[in-house]
Design a binder for these strands. Sequence first.
DNA 1: CTTGTAGCAGAATGATCATTCTGTTACGAA
DNA 2: TTCGTAACAGAATGATCATTCTGCTACAAG
Lengths: 198, 198
Amino acid sequence: MPRESATSTLELTERALHQFWTHGFHATSMDALVKSTGVSRHGIYAGFGGKKQLFEACFDRYQTLIVTPAFGRVEASDADLSSIAAYYESQIALAETIGLPGPGCFVANSSTEIAPHDASAKAKVAEHNARLRRGFTNALANERRNCGALSPLDLGALADVFVVFTNGLWSMSRTTTDANDLRVAVKTFLSSMEGTLR
Amino acid sequence: MPRESATSTLELTERALHQFWTHGFHATSMDALVKSTGVSRHGIYAGFGGKKQLFEACFDRYQTLIVTPAFGRVEASDADLSSIAAYYESQIALAETIGLPGPGCFVANSSTEIAPHDASAKAKVAEHNARLRRGFTNALANERRNCGALSPLDLGALADVFVVFTNGLWSMSRTTTDANDLRVAVKTFLSSMEGTLR
DNA sequence: CTTGTAGCAGAATGATCATTCTGTTACGAA
DNA sequence: TTCGTAACAGAATGATCATTCTGCTACAAG
């Protein structure tokens, strides 16, 4: 319930994203969007065309607002396992700030709620997972080079394990009340993976 | 669209479960339930009280119909890591039979779609995850005993990693088209975990 | 001030959908 | 056959909600 209304398209999608993220697509009424963005129905329809289009615009907003700031370090050319650890920590800290149990991952949520019956949402989810996979592969390759391991490990397969774990982690953050549980799971997982890379 | 209508309460919930599982709660109309179960609105309301209650009954049905047959082996007193592998394989094979991308896990789906705004659904999801955790802890304890490892490993933390991975796996099965990707992720994950247990 | 325009609030519209209601049918018991 | 009952199909109800529409307001340009 912002005091001021959104003054730009970017700010509008940001506020809409917050609604969709925490309540889901179906449970977010047009009325709730009008109230939370401070923008009139007229403004929303003129700017986006409808609820569905506004929802889709939120995907891109989520990438730049949430994913990139946290996951960017994993995609950096000098990223390694510690970058992945930092990524998880920043997301857990964020979830903690918002309050646990949290809203999880907007993309993963959309994947279960919308994607089964919507091709464009499905494509956006697939693209997001591909991004994660690329980033993890990058960091894992660096890590392996750094520690001088030479075994012919399938980094792609390992990256997939990270993608699966990541999806599961945000899924768990929707029911967990204690951020420490998430931290312990991450720590345990990462030290196992570290052992595997050696 | 069954030719015959459901003749028992159990059969009714089974068919309703299929609808809710594949389409979600919101996207399953009362009309769809009437058509797919072959039971009249009157019958559904007389037997359950409403859509919501029917949905809740599906949780228990899912446990006995899907979870227990597959996860029971992990809960057996002689379970070990191979039981966990068999569990994953049976669920992947099931998803393959239904067709990928599949409906994922009914409980996890409900966790994102319903649980945020429904206490009873939230409790059922938490209970399910606790069940997974207990089962994995059991199998991991056996595995460690069998291979004679003595290091003071936190099995609970390791079990949590398995719970997270499991949630992530079913989440991925909603977008993946190739069951082999899931199998590779499982295989890679399990061999890492095996190394950790030694 | 006047006029034009952009954006607003909130009322109408129309669709969808859970729930309830109404008649009808099938069928077993007497 | 004749009740009585149970369950059916599908129409009415009422609520919710996305979308559209209708005036109104604020304000900038002249």
